[in-house]
Design a protein around this nucleic acid. Structure first.
Length: 500
RNA sequence: GGUGACGUGACCGAGUGGCUAGGUAGAGGUCUGCAAAACCUCCUACAGCGGUUCGAAUCCGCUCGUCACCUCCA
């Protein structure tokens, strides 16, 4: 399975050919959301990027196992002992079970991601469903001497880990000494940790803490970063192929994950390729829950955010996300979305054109179609060049538009199709359809309202009756019957009903 | 304070040494009952100042500006 797909690996800071550990299988893990509130459009970038990635890997022939987790526990508000779990906090405020919060937002998230055209992951594990795996991981890390227990909590021992020749900080290019000196208020969190760079693997639960599980160290809950290491190993093995998430997860989340996997019996970097997509900004500033400058996915779909002049459909949002390379920041604005909307529709109009590209009867392809065939094949190949270059969907889309221009040109004058061989045309149209719908996941969104169209049809029906054009009347009746709809002539007017 | 990234035409956004990115908007044209779509043509930019080079948006330096991470965050 040789092909030139290369991906940028944060670990090595360069593009690398993608060669799975166990070809033709490819294991992909994406860090999913913490479901304590509604997701914003920035949270959608990862799923969309990884959806295209996994779709493309499948297109290339790999058997992909795609894992995207749901974090439904953890992530303390602060490092201090009294820090509260976000999930628990939301639950406490609303007087419900934490799992209700998790369930509500997890469901919403999945609905949103699905309408954005993302295929469901093969496995969607939850942190709370993998407490035993996490505990086991901690025990391994302790056994290897890279963690210690204090007061019912367990911390990862970063200095010990680095003393053993490992490299905490290698993913995010951090130096432990600098972290130690640079941490801003490292006095606030000075509690049980031997070093301020140590991080919790297990936290003892305070009596009022809602979410807790029994462990060898007493009642508690798993640490910030543990679930991904545990679940990735469980479902993708000790070394998966690709592990990804937002740039903001690189440190500390992914750095800690690597340390945990290295420190456990896995002794691996957890994944060969670490991919990080960039942030979505609003007016140049990162969209974030803490800043409050975010546009939720619902607001985008409904047009209810003040920065938006109108609602934007899921597919327009998807196109918007894909028209930039995943490692570039992307600034969301009404103008940019307008441009995306038109670009998306143009692409879809092209899709509807493909079947109509037929050489008119009576015309035969020219004897020598070599040049035109080569040009068409080059246009198709260009799309793959873009995708293969670190999944550059912006480049791929640009190439698709070039191909589309060619199709539109053919359609404007079908006789020009004689210059190209039927085989080459077939290849190109198939490739266009496949790339747009199967790989990029951009599908046509019906915009016309069926009932409005039906009302229009009934107007024509009425006019035909008035004109006593019964041929037309019968034609309309028959056509609607074909759709399972019967027209009812009532004294009061014309109505319709579904055929029973 | 430490680390890193970026600054492309009206807007969005590709592009790491020489070859048209692309989308949107705008102008002209073809087509057209009107309109739309489509096609053709045009508008052709690389923050500033130096440097390297036959040649730089692309490499180097400086200046200005913006942002991210270092704390939960996609």
């Amino acid at each position: 399975m040789q092909h030139p797909l290369s991906l940028y690996n944060t670990l090595t800071r360069q593009k690398e050919p993608f060669t799975p550990v166990h070809a033709p299988f490819a294991g992909v893990y994406l860090c999913g959301p913490t479901v304590y509130s509604e997701a914003h459009i920035g949270n959608a970038r990862g799923p969309v990027v990884f959806d295209v990635l996994t779709r493309y890997l499948r297109h290339l022939g790999y058997t992909v196992r795609y894992v995207r987790n749901i974090t439904d526990v953890g992530h303390l508000e602060s490092d201090a002992d009294e820090g509260e779990d976000k999930m628990a906090k939301a639950a406490r405020v609303r007087h419900v079970e934490p799992m209700q919060i998790a369930e509500q937002y997890a469901n919403l998230y999945q609905r949103h991601i699905e309408v954005l055209g993302c295929l469901p992951p093969d496995i969607q594990p939850r942190a709370t469903g993998h407490i035993t795996e996490q505990i086991q991981l901690i025990e391994e890390i302790i056994a290897n001497g890279f963690a210690y227990e204090v007061n019912g909590s367990v911390y990862f021992d970063v200095p010990a880990y680095n003393a053993a020749g490992r490299a905490y900080g290698k993913l995010s290019n951090r130096v432990v000494e600098e972290l130690l000196s640079g941490s801003r208020d490292n006095l606030a969190g000075q509690d049980e940790k031997r070093s301020s760079v140590d991080f919790a693997l297990w936290k003892k639960a305070a009596p009022e803490h809602l979410m807790h599980w029994p462990s060898p160290w007493g009642e508690g809950f798993p640490g910030w970063h543990l679930e991904c290491s545990a679940m990735s190993r469980k479902y993708l093995g000790q070394l998966s192929d690709i592990h990804g998430g937002g740039l903001d997860l690189m440190f500390p989340h992914h750095e800690c994950e690597i340390a945990q996997s290295q420190g456990s019996h896995s002794h691996s970097d957890e994944a060969r390729i670490w991919m990080h997509h960039n942030m979505i900004t609003v007016n140049g500033a990162k969209m974030s829950k803490s800043l409050g400058n975010f546009i939720t996915i619902s607001e985008l779909f409904e047009g209810t955010n003040k920065t938006l002049s109108q609602a934007y459909s899921p597919m327009v949002a998807r196109f918007f996300l894909l028209q930039a390379h995943y490692r570039s920041p992307i600034d969301i604005s009404d103008d940019a979305l307008q441009a995306s909307r038109k670009g998306y529709r143009k692409l879809m109009n092209g899709l509807r054109l493909l079947d109509k590209l037929q050489l008119p009867e009576g015309l035969a392809p020219e004897a020598d179609t070599t040049a035109a065939d080569a040009e068409l094949r080059k246009l198709v190949a260009d799309v793959f060049v873009g995708l293969n270059d670190d999944l550059n969907t912006a480049k791929a889309l640009a190439s698709l538009f070039n191909l589309l221009r060619k199709f539109n040109g053919f359609f404007a004058n079908l006789a020009t199709l004689a210059a190209v061989s039927p085989a080459a045309l077939q290849e190109a149209t198939t490739a266009y359809r496949t790339l747009v719908t199967d790989v990029l996941g951009l599908v046509d969104e019906p915009r016309a309202n069926a009932e409005d169209l039906l009302a229009l049809t009934l107007t024509f029906y009425q006019e035909a009756k008035t004109a006593k054009d019964y041929g037309k009347v019968d034609q309309i009746r028959a056509a609607l019957k074909g759709q399972g709809i019967v027209i009812k002539d009532l004294k009061t007017g014309i109505d319709w009903a579904y055929e029973e």
